[in-house]
Design a protein around this nucleic acid. Structure first.
Lengths: 174, 174
DNA sequence: ATCGAAATTGATACTCATTCTCAATTGAGA
DNA sequence: TCTCAATTGAGAATGAGTATCAATTTCGAT
């Protein structure tokens, strides 16, 4: 649960002689509040929106800064609660690691939806590859980009409408 | 072969009403000259080094600019000769696509060595996943980060040497 | 071979995510 | 409470990649 995660972070902070702060609490809570794959900007927004809604802090002059979000997400990642994922669009995202066994991702190029999957068979194939190349894995990630069911269907409908405008078309390798 | 690739690029250029230029030739040649996974900076260096060695162009005032490298690599990618690969270190790399069937990567965190692999079994597992989620793949990429055999061995040796230097140690009461 | 419209180029300014710097503030152990 | 190291926010800095633009080059039409 969320409180377990907070305990883990708290332990991590104390073990290192670091300090607990209101900002770190806010950022961790924001991160834990959803299962989404959040960017630093997402977290920054979540945190500052929630702060402005809390009137107990009406004397607060500043929101939480971007630098603090980045710094804290690094701590949360190092504590083992988060994993950084890179989908190649130039922005890092953070996903839950605690209580979330390793998985891979389907990323929809249409709507951006992210679906997680895992496969025992794939793990076995990977193990075989690693042995073959005498490679010691530290992390691994299979990403499949494409179209989710919904986006594929709506794209087909668009195609029918625009079917006269077929200009550019080259084949993918297969 | 290299000439076939150049023909493909030439065709691509002409089909689009674009122009052939010395810079584009240089950049394509640099890209084709190696099987490495090159960054834009790598290509920029390769191109400008080779130019300075060619005395036929001693009246040339400028080398090929970074912008031209980026622009041309985009063309080469669009022509189907290159594929952009993102290893998550903040820099894009380009690898051969023409004549190189799809594959995945082992990336050594120690020396940076990149090993390519492919697996029919993995393709089958992927096909199964795609069906399960009704997902239409457009691209996919399995990356495994870790240590190659050499780096793993030298890391173990280092560990043995430094095994006495364990100073900092906080109690782990759990 | 020349002409000229259109494409291309290099330099440079810019964007954008992320990191760094630093003075001011804050947390927590003594 | 005191003290001092850790933390903070603001803004500067970084670094990869893109956009802008005047000058240059290409290439098909003449």
């Amino acid at each position: 649960m969320e409180s377990e995660a907070k305990q883990i972070f708290d332990d991590y902070i104390r073990e290192r002689g670091l300090k607990g702060t209101a900002q770190r609490d806010l950022i961790l809570s924001a991160f834990l509040s959803t299962e989404d794959h959040l960017t630093a900007e997402d977290i920054h927004r979540l945190v500052n929106d929630s702060v402005s809604h809390n009137d107990f802090s009406s004397d607060k002059k500043h929101g939480v800064g971007f630098a603090t979000v980045y710094r804290t997400m690094k701590l949360i990642t190092d504590s083992g609660l988060a994993r950084e994922v890179i989908f190649g669009d130039g922005v890092s995202r953070f996903e839950h690691k605690y209580g979330h066994p390793h998985h891979h991702h389907l990323i929809c190029n249409g709507c951006g939806e992210i679906t997680e999957f895992s496969s025992q068979k794939m793990n076995e194939v990977e193990k075989h590859i690693l042995k073959k190349y005498s490679f010691k894995a530290e992390s691994h990630h299979f990403k499949i980009f494409g179209l989710c069911k919904n986006c594929e269907e709506s794209r087909n409908q668009e195609k029918q409408k625009k079917s006269k405008k077929n200009k550019k078309m080259y084949q993918e390798d297969k």
